[in-house]
Every structure is written in C-alpha cells, then in structure tokens.
Amino acid sequence: MKHFVAVYGSLKRGYGNHHLLDKACYIGSDTLTSLSLYNLGPYPGALAKPSDGVTVEVYAVNDPLLAMLDELEGYDSGAEKTSLYVRRKIQTSHGLAWVYLYNRPVRSGQYITDGNW
C-alpha cells in the first residue's frame, strides 16, 4: 500500500461505495479545515476552501485501487479540465493523502456547515 487517500462521502464506512475499500488499510480519521463540503444530491463534493472542518477517513491503497477510485470519481489525469473531480495531495494528521476535489461550480445553498455528509 503506497498511497494515502482521504475520503469524505460515499466511500466512508457505512456508505454505499465503502466496499471498494475492503482491501485498503484504514489509517484513521481526521477533520480537515482546508476543505469545504457541499451536498450534490447523491454524493458530496469538497472544495479547497477553509471551513470549520470536513470529517474524512484516511486509507492506504495500492496503485490498482487508486486507479479504481479515479474511475469512480470521474478523474482523468490527462483531461483534468473535464474531469468531475480532480485528485490533489492534502495534509492530514496521518501524513499527505490524496483527496478528490469537486471540479464544477457549486451553489452556496449546498454548503454542509458541519462538514459531515
């Protein structure tokens, strides 16, 4: 396992896509004040904007699993401008981790004030 990934939505424990992380190693949770969370209906999206904190779970994943997460999140490293999410490194209390940031405009009414989807 060579990558850390911080997840904040449907990949968290108890949510619909968590099964994709069955072979990942759970590292721990954190609250990231460098992100803001938005409710996009069936899933949330985070932006790199300060907030009171977004609750994330950090996992260690291998290359094939990271590629699968890229596909789930609609991330294409060769076409970032048209990707639904972009993948960026962010500092967590467990070290640097990839996080998927929403790559579309959001409305202020979609903001999740408590940082937990």
Rank of each mutant, 00 (worst) to 15 (best):
M1P: 10
F4T: 12
A6M: 04
V7E: 06
Y8D: 06
K12L: 02
Y15F: 14
Y15C: 09
Y15W: 12
G16A: 14
N17R: 15
H18L: 11
H18F: 08
H19I: 15
K23W: 04
A24C: 07
C25V: 13
Y26S: 15
I27M: 14
G28V: 14
D30L: 10
L32N: 11
S36E: 13
Y38W: 08
N39L: 02
N39V: 00
L40M: 13
G41A: 02
G45R: 08
A46T: 08
A46R: 05
L47W: 02
A48P: 00
K49C: 07
P50C: 07
P50H: 08
D52Y: 02
G53T: 06
T55Q: 12
V56W: 01
E57I: 11
V58G: 05
V58F: 01
A60W: 01
P64E: 09
P64H: 05
P64Y: 01
L65D: 05
L65S: 04
L65N: 05
L66A: 07
L66I: 03
A67Q: 13
L69Q: 06
D70T: 02
E71D: 12
E71P: 02
E73N: 04
G74P: 01
G78K: 12
G78S: 09
E80Y: 01
K81V: 01
K81S: 05
S83L: 03
S83R: 08
S83K: 08
Y85V: 09
R87K: 14
K89R: 12
L96A: 11
L96E: 13
V99P: 00
Y100C: 05
L101K: 04
L101I: 04
Y102P: 06
R104A: 06
R104D: 02
P105L: 03
V106W: 01
G109E: 09
Q110L: 01
Y111L: 14
I112M: 06
W117E: 10
